[in-house]
Design a protein around this nucleic acid. Structure first.
Lengths: 244, 244
DNA sequence: TCATATAATTGGTATAGACAACTATACCGA
DNA sequence: TCGGTATAGTTGTCTATACCAATTATATGA
């Protein structure tokens, strides 16, 4: 048993602390890629915790793809992927920063409207229910990257205004509902740019674009946002990870 | 306690059986959307198992998005999504069947080559290492949908031939290595079709296409397949789910 | 030497119980 | 009416233990 690694009186759960230590050991190559880490039983004596607690840590690391288990053999460090996809739901801002570019944004429209029927259906709205409709030019390193059209049901966040939309909408919504933001469904397709969009994106009116439509849900499954983004195909690739 | 729901002598783990029962009860609206299911303690007496076993079942259902937990309040049934994305890694065949179309396929090329450097890098190959290179036209309801170019390192599956490629490659590989197939990373972009591809896809040579590049990995992180698919933009949308 | 049995080790499943953190409600007193 | 407090119920974390199933290492015997 090794002392001083864990703080058992911390407000941070032990299994989270152990996750961090294991990640650190992988990073420091104390545990090498392709090799096995100590067995669950050995780790539990090393940290002086029960095996079930160690299992909780390892299970999380397996789910995140850092480790993998083989019954009867052991738990191994997985090969890291060449291109790390963005983890989970990210904003345009985070996305661009992760790509090493500086994001900026300009609001073209901000208003309350009754949305088209297809949008209303995706947001599970009754006929006539209003949404906030926001149109923004999204730029990276001062060059236009995408046009983004956002629909947010008024009943979800009636006090929304043009200032609030500039910050992190997700944080605001998570604070208002005592729920976390759950997941999202994305549709992706290729198309030729609309003539009206081509001048904002500063591309030829026959240029291809990548259109991403994302509907985001609270963890109870209620949709709270629909975003339709039109990206310049020459500047943007979408990278994602699929689990089996 | 209720008898006869679980088979404790079954080879199927109890926590899996409980998952199925809960899913069934949601489907039968015994547990209604937005309402809470019985507490973990109550379920554990109902099934006459320990609370931790029930927790394992519920945790899996929470991870799959069917339920969500609120500390101190209970566990609730989430709203189902309108459009269910394909779960995990799917083949073209599964994808088209799920969309209600009948897939077919025609092999244009099958050969061993030394791949371009970018492909070799993605597959973590040394210079000069060979891959199988397969080009296929993928059709749905007898209409061309995509051109698919597949690269598989020869060292991964040397005995591959034109017949084996028609079946489920994944099943073959999972059987050969005692590993499961792990996950994949996808890159998606929009473009104008290549002239040579346009006649196979039967589209105008200025038409947009959706290009999907997917690299698939064994659970130890070793890449075993790279597929570059060019889809007709007018016939194909890609739908995926993002977890936060 | 080479099979074959046996033991040891590993992750997988399951139990029973304890305390912490949080929520909702009922109740009481100012 | 308002605000605090007690209480009961919920999920979250953690322990200690046990046995099972798959794999690997070791010993045994022909």
């Amino acid at each position: 048993m090794v002392q001083g690694l864990l703080d058992k009186n911390s407000h941070i759960p032990i299994y989270i602390q152990i996750e961090e230590i294991i990640k650190q050991r992988i990073y420091l190559e104390e545990y090498k890629i392709g090799e096995n880490i100590p067995s669950e039983r050995e780790l539990s004596t090393q940290f002086d915790v029960s095996r079930m607690t160690v299992r909780q840590s390892i299970t999380n690391l397996v789910n995140s793809g850092l480790l993998y288990r083989e019954k009867g053999r052991g738990t191994y460090v997985a090969n890291p992927k060449l291109e790390q996809p963005l983890k989970g739901l990210t904003s345009f801002t985070e996305d661009m920063r992760a790509r090493g570019m500086e994001p900026s944004s300009k609001v073209l429209r901000f208003e309350k409207i009754v949305p088209p029927v297809d949008i209303a259906r995706d947001l599970m709205l009754e006929a006539g229910e209003e949404v906030f409709f926001v149109v923004r030019i999204r730029s990276a390193d001062s060059k236009p990257m995408a046009i983004e059209r956002t629909y947010i049901p008024v009943k979800i966040y009636p006090e929304l205004d043009e200032k609030k939309i500039m910050g992190s909408l997700y944080a605001l919504i998570e604070a208002k509902f005592h729920q976390k933001i759950g997941n999202a469904i994305q549709q992706m397709e290729a198309a030729i740019v609309l003539k009206e969009d081509s001048k904002f994106l500063q591309i030829n009116h026959t240029a291809p674009v990548l259109i991403i439509k994302r509907t985001s849900y609270l963890s109870d499954g209620v949709p709270f946002e629909l975003v339709r983004s039109t990206y310049r195909a020459d500047r943007y690739k979408f990278i994602s990870e699929i689990k089996r």
